[in-house]
Design a protein around this nucleic acid. Structure first.
Length: 572
DNA sequence: TGCGGCTATTG
DNA sequence: CACAATAGCCGCAG
């Protein structure tokens, strides 16, 4: 096929069912594709030119991944929008309104179909409405539209891309923002791949582990209820007197249950009950019950059935930057799977896992974002809490709690004394955190080192002054302060992590090793056994490349612990 | 039926 | 039990 593009092009791509349009950024070269040529043409463009693909949203990435394509580079307008504007909301209408400086508080909606309206078959001819907004009906029509409309869609993507590039370069004091935009885009693409690939799981092993908590798989609903009642009885049998309608799933009921055996607690959380195991035999039974109940409801047979495919892969939905500071999130328990289930995460025959986690990532990030020379010097130690402890004249554990407390905004408790030591030993880092907290308390927006806006203004219900007690207002301001203070560290750590992940993804493209899990500071790769040593080297070297790219110019050292293992639980 | 509270799990 | 997340069940208001 004769391609109209040249090496180094940036190419906007818009796809629908069986139709596609690709448009080069620096000219008017276009390629219109139908179902018969699309896969082959896109693969050829990728292979020969390796362009940076521009698309409106990760839906396009999902489409291409489902088609067997693994693009090397992209620019995800949605991901970059969230970086620039903060929050989790995106979508073409909002992106466009922001690019044109239009009011985003009331974006045009597609009229909801009701009993009286006729289904509309004719889509609007123009993408833009007279008021400048994108017409949502036109966007909806894209999916059943012709290639000409997709060409317009791609051209609009190019327009937004150019504008985003300019915006990022104009951000004051954020020279790395354009790089963040690229790694955030890569992370979004990686999310599409994680959704498609899934995490290898040994279902038989998972069922053995689940059975060890709640017994074999129930035959039906009645059987399940009977087994649950038996578990309840193991707790309730310790209780003297009549049971009434006591429900172990009701915290108030558990509280009164404990009161009946002479135990008074403000709440019934496990860490609190843990210390009361010796008080009465029912406490131990209750804690065992809680563990089983957790497996039964959240990580039991239903969980396996719902999220594991016939290919033995556990799949969830991935978001590249949900929430406060832009960490990756995942559903289906991929981010909070109990440690007891990890032995079931097993590499397939002929494969191994390459697992690596960043060591002490948050305090190292703090040293980088605050430009604190003394704290940066501490990062040259493999265990940076050791030099901090020496400098403060406290034990390592106290130093660790103090540093974490400073980043989370703790003001009371054991770490509070050492906190004052931190202020004199590392004044630059502490002042950086304090400034972020003050700004957030006022309700002013923050921006991470890599350029992500952390919105403080839009998150709160706007209360009239005086219609809330002074104490509550102060407590909420303090909460905002802790949130903002932590977002500077957690958000920058998320940016560093995604830079690392993007590098690893790119370097592993030529070999048979793929990222199958991202866990905030940990990467898990599924690798052909023969490639594992190469993959492990890529992962380890990737940390150095990420620190050069993300924290170039600072004297902060980042470290990773890498191992090649057969199952997830084999890691140290 | 939707929402806040409580609980558990992870980084 | 600080910061973040997903997810389940319960009680309660509408």
């Amino acid at each position: 096929m004769i391609l109209p593009f040249t090496q180094g092009d940036t190419i906007a791509i818009a796809v629908a069912d069986g139709v596609g349009a690709a448009l080069a950024a620096d000219g008017d070269a276009t390629l219109e594709l139908d179902a018969t040529q699309m896969s082959a043409a896109l693969a050829e463009i990728e292979q020969t030119l390796s362009p940076r693909w521009i698309w409106w949203s990760t839906d396009t990435a999902r489409f291409l991944v489902a088609d067997g394509l693994r693009p090397a580079r992209c620019w995800d307008l949605d991901a970059v929008h969230r970086l620039l504007v903060g929050g989790w909301r995106g979508g073409a209408g909002r992106i466009w309104a922001h690019r044109r400086g239009l009011d985003t508080s009331e974006l045009p909606q597609v009229a909801a179909p009701d009993l009286f309206s006729q289904p509309v078959d004719d889509d609007p001819a123009e993408a833009l409405r007279p008021d400048g907004h994108l017409d949502p009906a036109w966007i909806d029509g894209l999916w059943r539209s012709d290639v000409g409309h997709l060409r317009t869609w791609a051209a609009l993507a190019l327009d937004v891309h150019h504008w985003q590039v300019d915006e990022l370069e104009r951000l004051p004091e954020r020279p790395a923002a354009s790089g963040t935009a690229r790694s955030e885009s890569a992370a979004a693409l990686l999310c599409a791949e994680l959704e498609a690939d899934g995490l290898p799981i040994d279902v038989a092993e998972a069922e053995r582990i689940i059975a060890s908590f709640i017994g074999p798989r129930p035959r039906d609903g009645a059987d399940e209820a009977r087994l649950a009642a038996e578990r309840d009885h193991l707790v309730l049998q310790h209780l003297p007197g009549p049971l009434g309608d006591l429900d172990l799933r009701n915290p108030a009921g558990v509280k009164s249950l404990l009161r009946r055996v002479g135990i008074e607690v403000p709440d019934t959380r496990a860490w609190r009950l843990e210390r009361l195991r010796g008080e009465h035999e029912i406490v131990d039974a209750l804690l065992t019950w809680r563990k089983a109940e957790r497996i039964s409801t959240t990580f039991g047979y239903r969980w396996l059935d719902q999220h594991v495919g016939p290919d033995g892969r556990l799949r969830g939905q991935w978001s590249p930057s949900d929430g406060a500071a832009g960490r990756m999130t995942a559903t289906a328990g991929l981010h909070n799977m109990p440690a007891e289930l990890r032995p079931a995460i097993v590499a397939e025959p002929g494969h191994v896992f390459v697992r690596a986690d960043l060591g002490q990532i948050e305090p190292r990030i703090l040293a980088a974002v605050s430009n604190d020379d003394a704290l940066a010097a501490a990062t040259w130690d493999d265990d940076m809490y050791a030099p901090v402890a020496a400098r403060l004249g406290v034990t390592r554990d106290v130093a660790k709690v103090a540093v974490l407390g400073a980043m989370y905004g703790q003001t009371t408790g054991h770490g509070a004394v050492a906190l004052r030591g931190l202020e004199s030993a590392y004044p630059t880092a502490m002042a950086h955190l304090e400034a972020a907290a003050r700004q957030a308390e006022r309700g002013d927006d923050l921006r991470t080192r890599g350029g992500r806006l952390v919105r403080m203004s839009s998150n709160e219900p706007d209360a009239e002054p005086g219609d809330e007690p002074e104490r509550a207002a102060r407590s909420r301001a303090a909460a905002r302060g802790r949130y903002g203070r932590n977002a500077m560290v957690q958000g920058a750590a998320a940016e560093f992590f995604k830079t690392w992940a993007a590098i690893v993804r790119a370097r592993c493209a030529p070999i048979d090793a793929h990222i199958v899990l991202c866990l905030h500071d940990e990467l898990l790769l599924h690798s052909l056994t023969d490639c594992a040593d190469v993959a492990a080297q890529i992962v380890t070297d990737g940390v150095q490349e990420a620190s050069h790219r993300w924290a170039g110019g600072t004297e902060v050292r980042f470290v990773a612990d890498t191992s090649v293992i057969a199952r997830w639980s084999d890691a140290k």
